[in-house]
Each structure stands twice: as structure tokens, then as C-alpha cells.
Design a protein around this nucleic acid. Structure first.
Length: 492
RNA sequence: GCCGCGUUCGUCUAGGGGUCUAGGACGCCGCCCUUUCACGGCGGUAGCACGGGUUCAAAUCCCGUACGCGGUACCA
């Protein structure tokens, strides 16, 4: 049977970085096995539904380099791919379960259940909320007479359909990543399958869809592991063969715990995929990094492109423990990808960014040189226009840290240097000459190279770091450089 | 509380009884290159959670403990 996997997010917000990784593992697995990668939108929670979320998910996957084989907007033989459009199916299967005795109608209101829960907790017997005893005291088709149930249904009373979880049974299954996992049904609630608004819960919809869509492998986050036995029970109740399960380790925050929106942001980690898009991260770098967060190919390699990752990825090499998001390593990947990218591919992107900031770009050649000078120094594309801002406009302020290098003798040295270069003809205002002039000044004044170098850099760029200064000055041009030196001399 | 899952350098990981005085990567530190900033090169720092077994031999297998994480909804 050919491999079919799905990424099944619920459209309750922007695609989270953890969701992106889950999608990616599914994608890699599909491609590795020549299978299909399916997107299914699990929009069964009306209350948390977010209008733009689906588009955000699709855009994010596309940006990350994943192509969807079947899904909303894409089509496929197993649609529709939005659960809200498959309501009839779930009802049909829920009824089937009721007929076979595997599920039942329940008429208790949310309030009544809360009350029951509270009472149980106070009685010091907090654990099973719906064991066979409790359930008998509640209003459902297990305890009510057939006529009464009939009457309530016809009267339009609100009801849910619950799975009748068998008691004192062990549910065992083999997880591709965790081996045998087993649960005792005593700890399982009689899960709601159909909500009173007529929508299915995740559990029903998920099982019905995975089966009807012929999903072969369910690869999802570890937060689903505890629900897996419920799903297994459902497959059994339907008489269906469950798909292979694989529960992925969670991505953790550096301070511990699941990488939540709040935590991530307070730690400076972008949490939504769209933040990586707008933050100008390299998708290949992010995906390479994400692939290695909970998986490794087993050798010492670190850098792989999408195609290689597809070739290398197998579930048996996924690790079990949670993986802490390491932002610095992400940046290392990003840097790597930028260096590998040819300058001419970077140029249009840098141009866009510069234009967005309202910078005036003298010429394409000018931009080419800017990119070349900074190529080995930036770790993210937007740094071409931040670290390299001085290529486009005179420094508006001077970096505080760098200013420590502006000493008492700095103005004198800078003045001396200015005197040496101000009479240079335009066509001799080039890197080698500028450098030799600087050498003259330092020997004449018997000071170290850095004594003049740093102040000069500060004057021209406003920073204490950056690209090779002499070619940079050459590019910026004589008039501008002299103006900047004057400005610094006046202000510092 | 209960249930489940996990635990190798600060972090991501390799390792599946002897080849482990535990390998790689990020980070950090140092040196070299560069009379500037980086890149790069070289080197260093640092880890098998703990306690019991099993075995001639355990990071590797078993059992406990601790700790972490997840779940415990008419949310996914």
C-alpha cells in the first residue's frame, strides 16, 4: 500500500513553529517513501475558528518548500479536506457506533457534568469521572429507558454522543518512535464524539477521516499520545485497521516546557511561521534546523537541502525526548545558507529591503559591491541594509560601544588622515591608496594601526564593526567620506 | 492527584553490552590568519540524573527513585 500522510492543523491561529515541524516530518516521510502529503483542515471548533488561519497555513507550508498533494484548494480524490464540510459523514459513523452499542447518547448539560466533577473531587475520589458507576447516575441512553431517549431526541433536547469505553481493558499499540505503549481503559473518559452543536470532536473526525482518506501513518506531536488509546478504541469499534502511529517529541522553550507563544516571545524566539517570513529568515535554513530538532541522520552531517533531507529522513531516527529550541543554532544555519547563496541571488532581495527603508540606491553596480562586501559578514538578509545602512546614508548616530574607541588623540589623527586624502583626485580615491595613506599617518605619528582605524571606521560607518573599510570608503565616494569625517569631527 | 512519555556536554545529537580514557554540531574560550571588522583554520572547555540488580564486562539490558514534559474538556 502506498504511503499517505496528513498534516491536520486546526485553523485557530497562525501556524506555530512546532506545527511547521510536524508538517515537515510528515512531508519528509511522504517524499522519502514516494507517498502523498495531504493537508486537512480540522475546523470543528466553531468558537476558536480564525478566518485567515487556513490561508496562513497554506502560505507557510509553501514558503517552507512543502508541496501539498491533496488539500483544500488543491483538490484530490478524498475530499472535501475541511472537516466542517464533512459533517454528514461523522453523523453517519456516529450512528453506526450507537447501533453497534459502542457509543451512546448523553443528555447531561455541561453544568451538570461540572457539578458532578466537583462533587467527585470533594469526595476525595477525584480520578475517574465517568466510570461505570458514575455514568449510571447520569442521563444517557445507557440509563434512561428507550422511550425516554426517543422522546428527548424527538423533542430536540441537546445531546452529545459518547464513546462507551470498555472497562478494565488494556489498550496496547506500537508507536513507531516509542515502541509499545499501553494504557488501562480505567483512566479513560467516555469521550464525546459528537458535540451538541452537531460538530464532531477531534477524536471522531480524526479517526473517520484518517480511515476514509486512507491515511497509512499518523505522525503528530506527543501531546496526542494520551489520546491515542481512544483512537485505537474507535478503530476497533468500527472494525477498521488503525494506521501506524508516530508521536513526535515536543519542541521546548529554553526555560522549559512546551514552546508556547508567550514563552517563546519573551525569550526572543519568533513563534509563528509568518514571523520567520516577515523576519527575512531563509526557509531552507529554518527547515534544516527544524529537521534536526528531534531527528538526526546518524552521521556527523549538519547541512542538508530539502532534497537531501527527503532522502535521509526515517522515523526510526526520530528521538524521544523533547528538544529545546536553540536560536543561536538557527542563526548559524541561516548564516550558512546566506554564504552559500550566490551574491546575484541575494541582490534583488537586498534591493527590495533597501527600497522599503526608503534608501536611495545609486546603481545596480553599487548594490552589487555592497552585497559583496557584506556577504561573509551577515547572518540574515536584512543585515545587508542594517549593518550596511551606512552605504545608503550617513550615520545618524554613533554606536555607543564603538565610541569607547574614540579617544582624545582620535580627532588629531583623523584630521591628519583627512588632509592626506582630501586632495586625492577622484579617480585615485580607491582602496589601496586609502590604505597606504592611513599607513603614512600612523608611521608619521608613531601610533598603532587601530588608533586611527577605529575612529575612522566610526566616523564613516557609525559602527565599530563592519566590512573592509577601504573598499567601503572607495564605494561611498570622496565627497561623502569627507563630509562624514567633518561631521564626526564636529560632533564627537 | 491520577495516567502516559521521557532523561548522554549549557543546547541539538551520535551511541543499542566490550572498539567509549563517550564522537560531532551550536555556543563559549584561546591561538593563527588579517597592521581594521568578519570569514576561515587549529585547539580547548564541558556530559552518560541517582540507587540497586543482571553480566567476566553496562551510557547501552532490568527494577526502583528523582526530575522534566504531556494528558486528564461538548479545544485541538
Amino acid at each position: 500500500m502506498s504511503v499517505r500522510v496528513r498534516f491536520a492543523p486546526s485553523p485557530t491561529g497562525f501556524l506555530h513553529i512546532g506545527g511547521l515541524r510536524t508538517a515537515f516530518y510528515n512531508y519528509l516521510f511522504a517524499r522519502h517513501n514516494n507517498g502523498k502529503f495531504i493537508l486537512r483542515i480540522e475546523d470543528t471548533d466553531q468558537a476558536r475558528f480564525v478566518e485567515d488561519a487556513e490561508q496562513d497555513i497554506i502560505k507557510s507550508l509553501e514558503w517552507a518548500g512543502m508541496t501539498i498533494d491533496e488539500g483544500p484548494g488543491k483538490g484530490g480524490d478524498f475530499g472535501p479536506y475541511r472537516q466542517s464540510e464533512r459533517k454528514d459523514l461523522y453523523h453517519k459513523y456516529a450512528e453506526q457506533l450507537i447501533e453497534s452499542g459502542a457509543a451512546y447518547y448523553a443528555f447531561d448539560t455541561v453544568e451538570e457534568i461540572d457539578e458532578m466533577r466537583e462533587r467527585l473531587e470533594k469526595s476525595g475520589n477525584p480520578s475517574p469521572k465517568y466510570d461505570s458507576i458514575t455514568r449510571q447516575s447520569m442521563k444517557n441512553s445507557l440509563t434512561l429507558s428507550k422511550d425516554e431517549v426517543e422522546r428527548r431526541l424527538e423533542a430536540g433536547d441537546e445531546y452529545v454522543v459518547r464513546l462507551k469505553v470498555p472497562r478494565r481493558e488494556t489498550v496496547k499499540f506500537e508507536d513507531e518512535i516509542r515502541d509499545i505503549v499501553s494504557f488501562d481503559t480505567a483512566g479513560l473518559d467516555d469521550q464525546v464524539l459528537l458535540k451538541s452543536d452537531g460538530m464532531p470532536t477531534y477524536h471522531l473526525a480524526n479517526v473517520v477521516d484518517d480511515h476514509t482518506m486512507e491515511i497509512t501513518h499518523v505522525i503528530r506531536g506527543e501531546e496526542w499520545l494520551s489520546s491515542a488509546p481512544k483512537h485505537i478504541l474507535l478503530y476497533q469499534a468500527f472494525g477498521w485497521e488503525p494506521p501506524v502511529m508516530a508521536h513526535l517529541p515536543l519542541i521546548m522553550s529554553p526555560s522549559g516546557g512546551k514552546l508556547s507563544k508567550r514563552k517563546a516571545e519573551s525569550e526572543g524566539i519568533p513563534v509563528n511561521t509568518k514571523d520567520y517570513i516577515s523576519g527575512n529568515y531563509e526557509p531552507e535554513a529554518l527547515m534544516n534546523f527544524l529537521a534536526y530538532l528531534g531527528w538526526s541522520p546518524g552521521d556527523d552531517s549538519e547541512i542538508h537541502d530539502l532534497k537531501e533531507l527527503c532522502n535521509l529522513f526515517t522515523l526510526d531516527r526520530v528521538s524521544k525526548g523533547g528538544a529545546v529550541f536553540n536560536y543561536k543554532k538557527l542563526m548559524w544555519y541561516n548564516e550558512n545558507y546566506i554564504r552559500k547563496t550566490p551574491a546575484e541571488d541575494l541582490e534583488p532581495r537586498v534591493k527590495d529591503l533597501a527600497l522599503k527603508l526608503g534608501y536611495n540606491i545609486k546603481s545596480d553596480e553599487y548594490l552589487t559591491t555592497v552585497v559583496e562586501l557584506l556577504h561573509e559578514r551577515v547572518s540574515k538578509v536584512d543585515e545587508f541594509v542594517s549593518m550596511g545602512a551606512f552605504f545608503f546614508e550617513a550615520p545618524k548616530s554613533y554606536d555607543e560601544n564603538a565610541l569607547k574607541k574614540w579617544k582624545d588623540d582620535s580627532p588629531g589623527l583623523v584630521k591628519a588622515y583627512k588632509a592626506k586624502i582630501e586632495d586625492l583626485p577622484e579617480n585615485e580615491f580607491e582602496a589601496a591608496t586609502l590604505k597606504s595613506k592611513l599607513e603614512e599617518v600612523i608611521t608619521e605619528n608613531e601610533v598603532g594601526f587601530g588608533k586611527l582605524m577605529m575612529p575612522l571606521r566610526i566616523a564613516v560607518t557609525g559602527q565599530g564593526f563592519g566590512p573592509d573599510l577601504f573598499p567601503a570608503m572607495e564605494l561611498i565616494g570622496k565627497n561623502e567620506v569627507l563630509e562624514r569625517i567633518d561631521k564626526a569631527l564636529n560632533e564627537l
